[in-house]
């Protein structure tokens, strides 16, 4: 009895953590590359859910939503980067914070105006409905799918950043964008590509979590706070940090209610404070980075 309880909670933690990675990776990559703190990242996640909702209601096909909604969010992210963030590169980072914060507020209003303020939900596709017997306990199939997709995306990105040509350019640009520019690569296009990538991932997370959770205009604010905390714990700009941080927070979310039911709200912030006291740059942050 005790063993299956712990096993199930652990699986929950892994699942919650890995799903968060889809959101935190974009946030941390965008910061790592462009020094942009993107407050609108949660709104892009929210738009993923709402686009998903609309695609499902038009086509009746959840899988179409899984494909189309993230691409639409990516397109929008690209436009935002090209027309508003790009002119501000090299300026005081506060400009980006104010700009993206403004986008977050605008998108919240826009979503409320277009889709209404009521709670909605993307219905689970028939293929992924139901639960699976995992010997010790049974587990909802959709959440296993969520876990599988998150792990696959995280691993693929890891490989891409480590191994691919684009990954090398990305890392080089993050390290010294002027030098990369001088060597004949248009860094601005790399930046746009990274912003689009982060947006697509946020959109993907929006469709996936919009299916297992409620979709409402408040979802952007609730995810962005947690995502920022994770990125700070892992180290701003570090891919590894975003993954490890999300994993730790997932575990915290899973085991918190069992061991400290009255403090679940505060645990995340206590952890963040503790990490920052010991390692001010976060677990995997580069203390020398500007």
């Amino acid at each position: 009895m005790v063993l299956d309880g712990i096993a199930k909670t652990a699986l929950l933690g892994v699942e919650m953590g890995m799903t968060l990675v889809l959101v935190t990776v974009g946030l941390t990559l965008i910061f790592g590359m462009m020094d942009v703190i993107n407050f609108a990242h949660g709104s892009l996640y929210m738009l993923g859910a709402y686009f998903g909702l609309t695609v499902v209601s038009v086509t009746g096909n959840w899988w179409a939503a899984l494909l189309i909604a993230p691409l639409l969010v990516g397109l929008l992210g690209g436009l935002i980067e090209y027309f508003s963030i790009r002119p501000l590169y090299g300026r005081n980072p506060l400009y980006h914070i104010l700009l993206t914060f403004g986008f977050a507020i605008m998108l919240h209003g826009l979503v409320t105006e277009i889709w209404g303020g009521q709670v909605q939900n993307i219905s689970t596709p028939a293929l992924l409905d139901g639960s699976v017997d995992l010997v010790l306990f049974s587990y909802p199939l959709f959440r296993l799918f969520l876990l599988g997709v998150s792990i696959a995306v995280t691993a693929a990105l890891w490989l891409a950043i480590r191994q691919s040509d684009f990954g090398i350019v990305m890392r080089a640009s993050a390290h010294d964008s002027e030098m990369v520019n001088a060597l004949g690569t248009d860094v601005k296009r790399v930046f746009t590509a990274v912003f689009v990538l982060g947006s697509v991932l946020a959109g993907l997370a929006g469709v996936l979590l919009g299916t297992s959770q409620a979709v409402d205009p408040g979802m952007a604010a609730s995810i962005i706070i947690q995502a920022f905390a994770i990125v700070v714990i892992g180290g701003l700009g570090s891919y590894r940090g975003a993954v490890v941080g999300a994993f730790i927070v997932g575990m915290l979310n899973a085991f918190g209610p069992t061991f400290a039911p009255q403090f679940t709200d505060a645990l995340l912030y206590l952890l963040m404070a503790a990490v920052l006291l010991v390692k001010p740059a976060g677990l995997f942050g580069n203390p020398e980075a500007t």
Binding site: G5, R143, A254
Partner: peptide, 19 residues
Amino acid sequence: IGAPLGTSDYSSFLQEIEN
């Protein structure tokens, strides 16, 4: 079992409820 206002994932609270 009290869960913070605005919780989006109740799974670990649900386990307590089940227990």
